[in-house]
């Protein structure tokens, strides 16, 4: 298996699937987007060794249709309820990166009984006073019309990151890649721009409703979501363990595939 489209409420949703075993839903972030349009990406390939990994592309991302009726997190959660129903999934493990981690946390706080475990990688979503999520929309505007140094620095360990330069190159990339990135920014800005910059002030106090196992993974050099957010997630998720990936930036899921896969596989197999 790899990619296929399913129909949800009249909209096409693109799904990457691989492996057999207990179902694991993976909700993606910015750095996953180019990868989700092609073959199964490396992290998902690793997880598929022991589990059935299912990675839907958010509306407007990869080959998923854009939803004009998507205004806020509530709309997005309803979208995913329909996705889970279409996939005939009752309970599942939930893994989310970046703003996919935010979506995962929102789903877990609403439907804790359906979530077998929750893994968050550099998740946005929380308000931590004095430690705001950096402005990814601002740095998506190129410097001198050509350069994305600040965008790469926010998403990866540094502007010189190899994978960062592959996924978010300077200048004009291939048209399809450009459109994939643009779609992700359209999606993110629909519910994460105004206000509140990629977070929900009410999420923090609602997280206590999820009492199942949780794991928090963070890049040592995350320049998008400050480390204080990892601590806050851990605090609200019953002191969930925090795993710091050395030398990785925000996008652990593509920058440190082996480390992330090992941690998640170990965590999933225990739960």
């Amino acid at each position: 298996m790899s990619g296929r489209a399913i129909e949800v409420d009249g909209n096409q949703v693109w799904i990457i699937e691989e492996g057999n075993g207990g179902p694991v839903i993976y909700l993606h972030g910015f750095a996953d987007v180019p990868g989700l349009a092609g073959d199964v990406p490396p992290l998902q390939m690793e997880l598929a060794k022991d589990f059935q990994i299912i990675a839907p592309a958010h509306p407007a991302c990869s080959k998923s249709d854009e939803r004009e009726d998507l205004d806020n997190m509530e709309d997005l959660v309803f979208h995913y309820l329909d996705v889970f129903e279409a996939l005939d999934l009752d309970t599942f493990h939930l893994v989310g990166s970046c703003l996919g981690g935010w979506v995962a946390a929102e789903i877990a706080s609403r439907y804790p009984e359906r979530i077998r475990s929750l893994s968050l990688i550099g998740a946005t979503g929380l308000f931590v006073k004095g430690h705001p999520v950096a402005d990814i929309f601002w740095v998506a505007q190129p410097e001198d019309g050509l350069y994305y140094n600040d965008l790469r620095n926010i998403l990866f360990s540094s502007k010189d990151s190899e994978i960062g330069n592959e996924l978010f190159p300077d200048g004009r990339g291939e048209l399809d890649r450009e459109l994939l990135r643009y779609g992700m920014f359209r999606f993110a800005s629909r519910f994460g721009f105004s206000p509140p910059y990629l977070h929900n002030r009410k999420l923090r106090s609602r997280l206590r409703r999820y009492k199942g196992p949780a794991l928090v993974i963070w890049g040592e050099n995350d320049h998008l979501v400050p480390r204080e957010h990892a601590t806050a997630y851990s605090d609200e998720l019953n002191n969930a363990p925090i795993e710091i990936i050395s030398e990785s930036g925000h996008s652990v899921q593509v920058e440190a595939v082996a480390d992330a896969a090992a941690l998640i596989l170990k965590f999933l197999s225990k739960n």
């Binding site: 929309f137 601002w138 505007q141 190129p142 001198d144 019309g145 990135r181 643009y182 920014f185 800005s189």
Partner: peptide, 10 residues
């Protein structure tokens, strides 16, 4: 850095 048009303001 232009603030009036671009992918960050989609």
């Amino acid at each position: 850095r232009t603030q009036t048009f671009g992918p960050g303001i989609p």
